[in-house]
Nucleic acid binder design. Structure first.
Length: 528
RNA sequence: GAGGUUGUAGCUCAGUCGGUAGAGCAACGGACUUUUAAUCCGUAGGUCCUGGGUUCGAGUCCCAGCAACCUCACCA
């Protein structure tokens, strides 16, 4: 990939660092080694190696091996004097093989201390000329920060007690031509951290762990759903109609069919077609695309989970949501009371459940059925009031005054029907929809319905939504093919959507969505 | 889309009132076989985001642009 920054004939301006590194690269090649390395079998993860520290023994010249005292952590033990007290002898530990990136080097004459790091941890290498021999010591002289190396040696402790691999063979596995970020501050510029996520992962504390936790959360969700008999499918990402949510789509085009297409904004309508088709428990966990602003909680592409269960309802989905979330927390080894920013979230189930109207009255201070009072409050809040349905207005007030107050976790249940075009109404209250949203720290994380399966009502609601709205802004586009599917009979069902990125933010104590997306959307680097 | 903040060496950051461009880390040369952000001596490294303007003189002041971040708007 060539950057837009300069033509390929332009040498990079940072020539000094690169030429020094290229010089060492040549020297490695002259030693008969491949500076780009190759297969390196039978290594042990550094985290696993560290776990074997207690196998190191002190072998006195006479007598039996002695176990080492605990020297890790904050222990005040002076390991050097402990060793002296034991008399002559040596430390012997298990043989290990490790590989990783050089993150720190300290040179001391015919001796080098090199810290290498893999994705499970860091460990120090002791490289002595006597111990590794002339050739490998010469190789170690060509090491730069950022290089990838392998090592064979014995697990061991230095006189200060530091867990170390006493190297006897070195392997060169890959040269880095660029200098790494500053060694104690790391990468600070948030733009660079996102653009050069590979550096952020390697050199910023907690970043690798956060993204590995993201993977564990997603694995846990798949496992929970699989255990409960749900089938994972992959629906189309290219849609002819942007349905299932209210959002502006990205537009694209298929050449051979000369067909305008949009990237999907939701997973809903195809999953419900599968309910019609007899897939009784079905879900998709995938990317959706919304052509909207970017902010701390919004990225134009994000990961969504949608789950549908035949013969369930929104209460079924509430219980499922609790299981999905609490198991995901267990999967990353975290407690149910989790820190988030300055606060703490208690995920101990069952989560609180409050009705939309109840919360509305409590936080907006206006009776939920007093249209006049709501309208005047909306005006006070500078909300657009002209030509808006009373329930739409009420929901605008709800978003403005109530959502921020919902620290959660709290299920907000029973929404005004008129803002829920895909949801079944309560039999006893046709103006109330069987819907919940799960709120955490003022953020909507999950949204679920008892799914509407009456094709006539669905068609009518699509139609109502379209009236008087520009097509882009309508909440649900008329999808005749979807209505036709409903006409064949969709089982009553519960449906659930979870914003995976937001869930990961909350479970990993990440302040912005960009902290949990490896490559968030950025403008291309400027070309002056 | 609006406002605010920021942009200086590969990285992290100083830069006073407008008067020769600075430090630490990284790099290069040297010393050191138990270091821990190793230390010590020496060297090199700059499109001060870009383009205009004011001025004898601009990293600094003014205007425009670019990018990031924050707030807002948009956003089931």
């Amino acid at each position: 990939m060539s950057g837009s920054k300069s033509s390929s004939s332009d040498p990079r301006p940072s020539g000094i660092h690169e030429s020094s590194r290229r010089g060492k690269l040549r020297k490695i090649a002259e030693m008969g080694l491949d500076p780009w390395g190759g297969r390196f079998d039978d290594r042990t993860a550094i985290g696993t190696i560290r776990d074997r520290a207690d196998e190191i023994r002190f072998h006195p010249e006479t007598g039996d091996p002695i176990a080492l005292p605990a020297v890790d952590g904050e222990s005040p033990l002076d390991f050097r004097s402990w060793l002296n007290q034991q008399g002559p002898g040596q430390l012997v530990g298990p043989r290990v093989r490790a590989a990783g990136r050089i993150v720190l080097q300290r040179k001391a004459g015919k001796l080098r201390f090199v810290d290498i790091q893999d994705w499970t941890g860091k460990i120090q290498l002791f490289i002595g000329k006597q111990q590794v021999g002339e050739a490998d010591f010469e190789l170690a002289g060509q090491f730069d920060l950022g290089d990838l190396i392998g090592v064979d040696g014995a697990l061991w402790r230095t006189k200060t007690g530091e867990l170390t691999i006493l190297a006897d063979h070195l392997h060169f596995l890959g040269k880095s031509l660029e200098p790494p970020p500053e060694k104690h501050h790391g990468l600070q510029d948030p733009e660079l951290r996102q653009r050069m996520r590979y550096l952020d992962l390697t050199y910023s504390d907690g970043v690798m762990e956060r993204f590995l936790n993201r993977a564990k959360i997603i694995q846990s969700i798949r496992r929970t759903l699989g255990d409960e008999g749900f089938c994972e499918i992959e629906g189309p990402t290219l849609h002819t109609i942007a349905g299932g949510a209210a959002a502006r789509p990205f537009r694209t085009h298929h050449n051979a069919l000369d067909l305008p297409l949009v990237l999907r904004i939701a997973l809903e309508l195809h999953l419900k077609r599968l309910l019609v088709g007899g897939m009784e428990r079905v879900y998709e966990l995938g990317r959706v695309y919304r052509n909207e602003g970017i902010g701390p909680r919004h990225n134009p592409e994000f990961t969504m989970l949608e789950v549908y269960q035949a013969y369930g309802d929104y209460r079924t989905m509430m219980e499922l949501t609790e299981r999905l979330v609490t198991r995901a927390i267990q999967a990353i080894g975290a407690p149910l009371r989790l820190p988030y920013g300055d606060t703490e979230i208690d995920f101990t189930p069952p989560f609180a459940r409050h009705s939309y109207n109840e919360l509305f009255e409590q936080h907006a201070g206006v009776p939920p059925d007093d249209h006049q009072a709501i309208r005047s409050l909306a005006r006070e809040l500078n909300l657009e009031t002209a030509n808006r349905h009373p329930d739409v207005l009420k929901n605008a007030v709800f978003e403005e005054r109530v959502e921020d107050q919902l620290h959660g976790p709290v299920f907000v249940i029973d929404y005004p029907a008129s803002i829920c075009p895909l949801t079944k109404r309560k039999a006893s209250h046709p103006k109330i929809a069987e819907r919940f949203e799960l709120f955490l720290c003022g953020m909507e994380v999950a949204n679920a319905y008892t799914e509407l399966n009456d094709p006539d009502l669905q068609e009518q609601l699509f139609q109502t939504q379209l009236e008087g709205l520009p097509e882009e802004d309508s909440m649900a586009k008329m999808d005749h093919d979807f209505v036709r599917a409903l006409r064949h009979g969709m089982p009553p069902a519960g449906g659930l959507g979870i914003g995976i990125d937001r869930l990961v933010m909350l479970l990993t104590n990440s302040p912005t969505i960009r902290d949990v997306i490896l490559f968030p959307l950025l403008r291309p680097e400027s070309s002056p």
